[in-house]
């Protein structure tokens, strides 16, 4: 191997990576918040919602979980305009991430809801709470608390998966690497740097989410 590694270009091109990181972070923050909200709604609909809504939610969750994110993204960005629904690159990427995370988090949150002891529902009802009130105040928060680590992992997976949004020209971290390597012809170094940044982002994001879990759910109850 006679290759000479060269990272000197970093002095000129580091702002490209900063912009890329900011876009990746922006996508996962919006996609994460809205995606978990969608997932919560779907989890409610599937385990406690009206009967007519359940098959629709099951179909959505199964369709998304059994197709690649790349194809979902292409369908939204290239396919939907043909049906008269046009989105910008960033909008399409955000929507794809929301839909993807929504399906995965629905399954995770549902597991939390279904692990709730029946007595909790009955206790809520006996306090004259409506089913929605019981869900919101009694069921949802402990359910989220239970599955929070799994949810955090899923958000990290979606963040890593978002690398493919560069394929529809969203200027994220992967796009930055593609851009730099096309200018400097230092492909391996450019991808090496961006891979290292992704690793750092994944570790940071996971840490931040777990900390957030401690803030949102301050009273760590003993099991049951």
């Amino acid at each position: 191997m006679n290759y000479q590694f060269d990272f000197a270009w970093l002095a000129t091109y580091w702002p490209v990576f900063v912009d890329g990181v900011l876009m990746t972070v922006r996508l996962i923050v919006i996609g994460g918040v809205v995606g978990i909200a969608l997932g919560t709604f779907c989890a409610w609909a599937r385990s406690l919602g009206p009967a007519w809504l359940k098959p629709a939610v099951v179909a959505y969750v199964e369709l998304i979980r059994n197709t690649p994110f790349l194809i979902q993204l292409f369908f939204i960005f290239f396919g939907l305009p043909a049906a008269g629904f046009r989105l910008t690159e960033v909008e399409a990427a955000t929507l794809a991430m929301v839909i993807n995370l929504g399906a995965y988090s629905a399954e995770i949150i549902r597991a939390g809801i279904e692990a709730t002891p029946k007595g909790q529902f009955e206790a809520g009802a006996s306090l004259a709470m409506s089913p929605i009130q019981t869900f919101r105040h009694v069921v949802l928060i402990p359910a989220l608390q239970k599955i929070w680590p799994a949810l955090a992992s899923q958000v990290v997976i979606v963040m890593l998966g978002s690398a493919v949004v560069s394929q529809i020209a969203v200027e994220d971290l992967t796009y930055a690497a593609n851009f730099v390597q096309s200018r400097t012809f230092r492909a391996f170094e450019a991808y090496f740097i961006s891979t290292a940044i992704y690793l750092g982002l994944a570790i940071l994001l996971r840490f931040a989410l777990l900390r957030l879990g401690h803030v949102i759910f301050p009273h760590k109850r003993a099991a049951r």
């Binding site: 890593l160 992967t174 992704y198 690793l199």
Partner: peptide, 8 residues
């Protein structure tokens, strides 16, 4: 597990 498959 902590880096995108695309980068790999």
């Amino acid at each position: 597990q902590g880096t995108p498959l695309l980068m790999q």
